[in-house]
Simulated scan of single mutants.
Amino acid sequence: MSSAKQDATRDRIEAEIAGPLNVMGLDVEAVEVTPAGKRRVLRVAVDKDGGVTLDDVADATREVSRVLDESDVMGELPYTLEVTSRGVDRPLTLPRHWRRNADRLVKATLVEGGEVVGRILSSIEDAVTLEVDETSREVPYADIARATVQIEFNRKKRNDSEDV
């Protein structure tokens, strides 16, 4: 299948499932169709405010399966459906990604070069406020080339006591 045809199929799948999943309170974050021998693997990543639970993933899987069964978008070739959460390794590309990761540590590569590492304090429609070296810094999304959440092990919450 050509790249343009794969893109069109992916876009059509996303268009078919976005509405029903949105009714469930879920956003479609990614749709990938990958050839796997004589089959294809359809991966759908979903997210929502407060995070996605296993029950959300199970419900989304049933709904995506139902929608695809009622549509001809996947054609006649067999496929395997995988529904998952967005995952911490996916880049932050939309304001809702920043909002949903409030208080998390992020690393942002800037369009003009350089990096900013800071904790998300707040986000609005066109900018994010990060705590960088104990100082607030507002960074417009337009100035960010790429940003990802950084994994923190053994991080103490702000209100945790040192005497545990």
Score class of each variant (00 low, 15 high):
residue 10 R to N: 10
residue 10 R to H: 06
residue 10 R to Y: 02
residue 11 D to L: 09
residue 11 D to T: 05
residue 12 R to Y: 04
residue 12 R to I: 01
residue 12 R to C: 05
residue 13 I to H: 02
residue 13 I to Y: 02
residue 13 I to Q: 02
residue 14 E to M: 14
residue 14 E to W: 11
residue 14 E to K: 15
residue 14 E to H: 12
residue 15 A to M: 05
residue 15 A to E: 11
residue 15 A to P: 00
residue 16 E to W: 03
residue 16 E to I: 10
residue 17 I to M: 08
residue 17 I to A: 04
residue 17 I to Q: 06
residue 18 A to Y: 04
residue 18 A to T: 15
residue 18 A to D: 10
residue 18 A to I: 05
residue 19 G to H: 10
residue 19 G to S: 11
residue 19 G to Y: 09
residue 20 P to E: 10
residue 20 P to T: 11
residue 20 P to L: 12
residue 20 P to G: 11
residue 21 L to M: 01
residue 21 L to F: 00
residue 21 L to Y: 00
residue 21 L to Q: 00
residue 21 L to D: 00
residue 21 L to C: 00
residue 22 N to A: 13
residue 22 N to L: 03
residue 22 N to R: 14
residue 22 N to G: 13
residue 22 N to Y: 05
residue 22 N to T: 08
residue 23 V to K: 12
residue 23 V to N: 09
residue 23 V to Q: 10
residue 23 V to T: 12
residue 23 V to C: 04
residue 24 M to H: 13
residue 24 M to V: 10
residue 25 G to K: 11
residue 25 G to A: 08
residue 25 G to E: 12
residue 25 G to S: 12
residue 26 L to V: 05
residue 26 L to F: 13
residue 26 L to C: 03
residue 26 L to E: 02
residue 27 D to A: 11
residue 27 D to L: 09
residue 27 D to V: 03
residue 28 V to L: 06
residue 29 E to N: 11
residue 29 E to K: 14
residue 29 E to L: 08
residue 29 E to M: 13
residue 30 A to S: 07
residue 30 A to D: 08
residue 30 A to G: 03
residue 30 A to Y: 01
residue 31 V to T: 01
residue 31 V to P: 00
residue 32 E to M: 04
residue 33 V to A: 08
residue 33 V to K: 09
residue 34 T to L: 14
residue 34 T to S: 15
residue 34 T to Y: 10
residue 35 P to M: 07
residue 35 P to I: 07
residue 35 P to S: 07
residue 35 P to Y: 08
residue 36 A to M: 14
residue 37 G to L: 08
residue 37 G to H: 07
residue 37 G to Y: 09
residue 37 G to A: 04
residue 37 G to T: 06
residue 38 K to G: 13
residue 38 K to V: 07
residue 38 K to R: 14
residue 39 R to N: 15
residue 39 R to Q: 13
residue 39 R to M: 08
residue 40 R to Q: 15
residue 40 R to K: 15
residue 40 R to S: 15
residue 40 R to H: 15
residue 40 R to M: 15
residue 41 V to D: 09
residue 41 V to P: 07
residue 41 V to W: 10
residue 42 L to M: 01
residue 42 L to K: 01
residue 43 R to Y: 04
residue 43 R to E: 05
residue 43 R to N: 03
residue 43 R to L: 09
residue 43 R to F: 01
residue 43 R to M: 07
residue 44 V to K: 11
residue 44 V to C: 07
residue 44 V to W: 03
residue 44 V to D: 03
residue 44 V to Q: 05
residue 45 A to D: 04
residue 45 A to W: 05
residue 45 A to P: 00
residue 45 A to F: 04
residue 45 A to S: 14
residue 45 A to Q: 12
